[in-house]
Design a protein around this nucleic acid. Structure first.
Lengths: 383, 383
DNA sequence: GACGAAATCTGTAACGATACAGTAGCGATG
DNA sequence: CATCGCTACTGTATCGTTACAGATTTCGTC
């Protein structure tokens, strides 16, 4: 009786047609079954957060029906779906994540796996922003899972696999033969890499075209008349090390310049280490006249080294660097920069993992972002 | 029978005393009850992740007992606890987060609420690192919850309250009268603010001592003989705006200098806007000879302005700036910097929210970090 | 007008954990 | 020796959701 009354009330209140009621079950016989689990017969507590039960009570439907209606299942009537959706929206229903996760295993979590150490120049920040920009329109949350790169990089991956902590993973510092990629592929955990691999596994990635960057950098330097070029490269274990080297060497060949060897340090070393090593080079007879820097922070150390050696950028040497932010453009306009849009990378990575989770083919989830030279900061016109 | 056998086997295997077994229930009568819910009688599936059920099966105990043993409940025997802990550790048991969350409401999540816009100079990055450093030793995960500051800052807070998405919240860009603080306090949601409020509500916070920063900056500038000082301040709605102003003005008074008015722009404005405004000032007859910059990125724009106006830092003007990273020290050693350790802030904030969640009194969860002048980058000694 | 199929709705069990209300055994008490 | 209280353990119900296996009604078919 109670249920039926309520159904009619609702139907009347919203002025809807009563057609749907005619064949409702329980309309007359409703109170006969065990009332134990008849959720819709028990009014929900007042201040509590709405659940399927709440909607079931309000609509007079069963919990299952409500669940299926919200999923747009084919065995639910069109009008019922409409009614359920309306009520759900009205009371601001949001599925309980714990309930869903427990039942289905779906976490609605994307995990961003970071080394605590890769934060030197704050690359993470815009990346997180980019990722969240995309996730904002989805049910996904972003969980940051750090690890100490001095330890096992597989640690966080294993944790996620063992505990089912995420539906998808974003990793960076990708290596040509990356054990994390192998593991996640084997275990069918959707992921995307920032950077590419060379294992013959087709997987989603986003990458900056470092080969092109180095190639264009060399072109530009030779256009400035520079012939003896040096490259501050990424650490050799990362994939983009070879990309950058390849571009650099192809550039040397195509534009007619020669390489000055400089392998003692790479962009992972401390600024002090880079400066000291490079200062030595700049003071030697082998000193280069053109520099390609694989990282913005590395460029800072190089500039310091050049100046310590009593030389000047834009005069004794020219320099092109990759830059994820634009303070160099402001402080050292004589340095030529190619902007690496990390925020964009974040967006692309997020889209790719979600695509992977949704089962899109990996080869459609790969993107490469093209470097472009930045123009100098515009001069003020006011004064 | 099965159960009992297993229990003995276990006890023998690890060479433990059998005392505890003598009075075990179910030792003889075990198979009599309804076996339906006797979890321990059903072997767990092979490859699956271990649950309480798994441990219950292996130890021959009930699920409840295992649960309570792992919680070190007082009504569980010491030897049983030991046994359970051992097995749990052996098989790498980790409680299912969804199960706990659904039953208890505890999410084990800390939410970092960010504006998408506050990322200009990548302050987030080291902060995330600091937070995760602390969370690594706890069951907490870090979820990043962004919002567009152009919209309702209460949005994410309401979301967390409505959906019970987190056990604790970290917010920044704190205002003197901050609606988020009021709301979370009312609703008893543990939180911590990066920055202080002025509402008479005692709550956990971590803050940089911006008053002291500005005061010491003025001291230093006057020591350099500067007398006409300007302050690039935070936006007026944030609490640390007044802190910094107060320190600045107290410094002017104590050290005998005068303020040059400069309120058109603040550190939230674009670099271009700051530069244009400041260039105008530098070209006017009112030009200051000492500058205090409330942000590192702001300082970049100020430097550009100074140079556009044909002047030179360390010569025509001196400058002190707050700096969250050290590229200024490298690129503009003539600028004096006070380091703001954002990573430390992250650590302090994380400790404070957790403390708040654990019920520690808020007044014990407040900290202020003291600014210190940085020494210049050490010169290379190698060459 | 019986029968099957289609359409639409339903209850039950389960995911893993915990709160709660027990129960069995045992020694002490009167 | 009945009873009480204590220790150490237990099963049941529940959190919110969904998979699954029915139910019930309607309608077309023979």
């Amino acid at each position: 009786m109670f249920v039926s009354t309520l159904r009619v009330k609702w139907a009347l209140d919203r002025g809807g047609s009563r057609k749907g009621l005619k064949r409702g079950r329980g309309w007359v016989t409703g109170m006969e079954g065990k009332t134990k689990n008849r959720a819709a017969t028990v009014p929900p507590p007042a201040g509590a957060r709405p659940t399927l039960k709440t909607i079931a009570f309000m609509t007079g439907l069963g919990i299952t029906t409500v669940s299926r209606a919200l999923k747009d299942a084919p065995d639910i009537g069109a009008e019922t779906k409409e009614r359920v959706r309306l009520v759900a929206k009205q009371i601001g229903y949001q599925p309980n994540r714990a309930g869903v996760r427990l039942r289905t295993g779906k976490t609605n979590v994307i995990s961003l796996v970071l080394t605590l150490e890769e934060e030197i120049m704050g690359i993470t920040s815009p990346m997180v922003v980019g990722i969240t920009e995309i996730l904002a329109g989805t049910p996904y949350h972003l969980v940051v899972t750090p690890y100490s790169s001095t330890k096992d990089p597989l640690g966080p991956i294993r944790y996620i696999l063992d505990t089912g902590a995420a539906d998808g993973v974003i990793i960076s510092r990708t290596e040509p033969h990356d054990a994390r990629v192998t593991l996640m592929t084997e275990r069918h955990l959707p992921f995307v890499t920032h950077g590419r691999t060379e294992m013959g596994i087709v997987h989603p990635f986003h990458d900056f075209d470092n080969e092109r960057f180095a190639y264009e950098a060399v072109r530009r330097l030779t256009e400035c008349g520079r012939r003896r070029l040096v490259l501050l490269e990424p650490p050799p274990n990362l994939t983009f090390h070879s990309h950058m080297r390849t571009g650099f060497e192809r550039g040397l060949k195509d534009f007619g310049a020669e390489a000055v060897s400089f392998h003692h340090v790479n962009i992972d070393h401390s600024l002090v280490a880079i400066r000291d090593a490079f200062e030595q080079l700049m003071r030697s007879v082998d000193a280069p006249d053109g520099i390609v820097s694989g990282s913005g922070s590395g460029a800072i150390a190089l500039i310091a080294a050049i100046e310590s050696a009593g030389k000047k950028v834009g005069q004794d040497v020219d320099m092109v660097t990759k830059a994820p932010s634009d303070f160099l453009r402001w402080l050292r306009p004589e340095v030529m920069t190619m902007y690496e849009d990390i925020r964009l990378a974040g967006r692309e990575l997020a889209k790719a993992v979600i695509g992977h989770i949704e089962g899109k083919p990996p080869e459609t989830l790969q993107s490469l972002s093209q470097p472009e030279f930045q123009r100098p900061v515009s001069k003020s016109r006011k004064v």
